[in-house]
């Protein structure tokens, strides 16, 4: 049995459809129910929904042999796994955004609100900038509006939410999309099936 971890949510649903299109159906997986584990008997695959942030943990520790995670999560967690493929879906950008009237004062410590403290730290370390990281769990746009932070480091897909809150993108840190990852040990011993899944997903993405 090959174990596959998929991220619960919008990206996971897209990826689940990509698996189905590639010939790997998991009956009931997209139904509105509370089931977490789904089996494909034909290819002996078991697929489960986990929190997007946890996909790399399941794969790195070998509970899942492969998984699909957004590049944002991989950059943040830096897991010791193989990143086999860019599935070319779920495109967005890790960006720095601020209020329209924001002016950077390099004499002050920059206050950065984010759900991705490691990505923010690495980005500003590369610029030699002193920052104060404020880790939040969502509704990032509020932080600069209310004056909690000067900027935010967050995922931007279309930019609509930013515009509605009078924020704009200052710079792009990384291009993001869904990536197929594999446990390093599992990949060595189950290379045929993993390579076949990778090949089919790539030709259908």
């Amino acid at each position: 049995m090959l174990n596959i971890a998929l991220p619960k949510g919008r990206l996971g649903e897209k990826v689940c459809r990509l698996f189905a299109k590639s010939g790997y159906e998991f009956p009931g997986m997209l139904d509105n129910n509370r089931k977490l584990v789904f089996v494909n008997e034909e290819f002996n695959l078991r697929c489960f929904w986990v929190k997007p942030f946890d996909v790399p943990v399941y794969v790195e520790r070998g509970t899942a042999d492969i998984g699909v995670a957004g590049k944002d999560i991989l950059l943040e967690r830096n897991p010791d796994v193989y990143e086999l493929s860019d599935l070319k879906t779920g495109y967005c950008k890790m960006s720095v955004a601020a209020r329209e009237d924001f002016k950077d004062d390099s004499q002050k410590i920059l206050r950065v609100a984010t759900e991705f403290p490691n990505i923010a730290k690495n980005y500003y370390a590369g610029h030699g900038r002193d920052i104060d990281i404020i880790t939040l769990r969502g509704s990032l746009e509020l932080a600069p509006v209310l004056g909690l932070s000067d900027v935010i480091v967050d995922i931007v897909e279309t930019g609509t939410t930013l515009r509605e809150n009078n924020l704009h993108v200052l710079s792009v840190i990384a291009e993001l999309s869904a990536r197929l990852i594999a446990n390093k040990s599992a990949y060595k011993f189950r290379k045929e099936i993993i390579s076949e899944i990778m090949r089919r997903l790539e030709s259908n993405s």
Binding site: N183, K184, K188
Partner: peptide, 28 residues
């Protein structure tokens, strides 16, 4: 297996470098 994903820490290693895996053990 010749596999260059075994290359790590170039400050430390300068020649041959290797990593060993066993089925069922999730890391090298």
């Amino acid at each position: 297996r010749i596999d260059f994903s075994a290359v790590n820490n170039l400050n430390y290693y300068n020649g041959i470098v290797f990593k060993g895996f066993i089925e069922g053990i999730p890391e090298s």
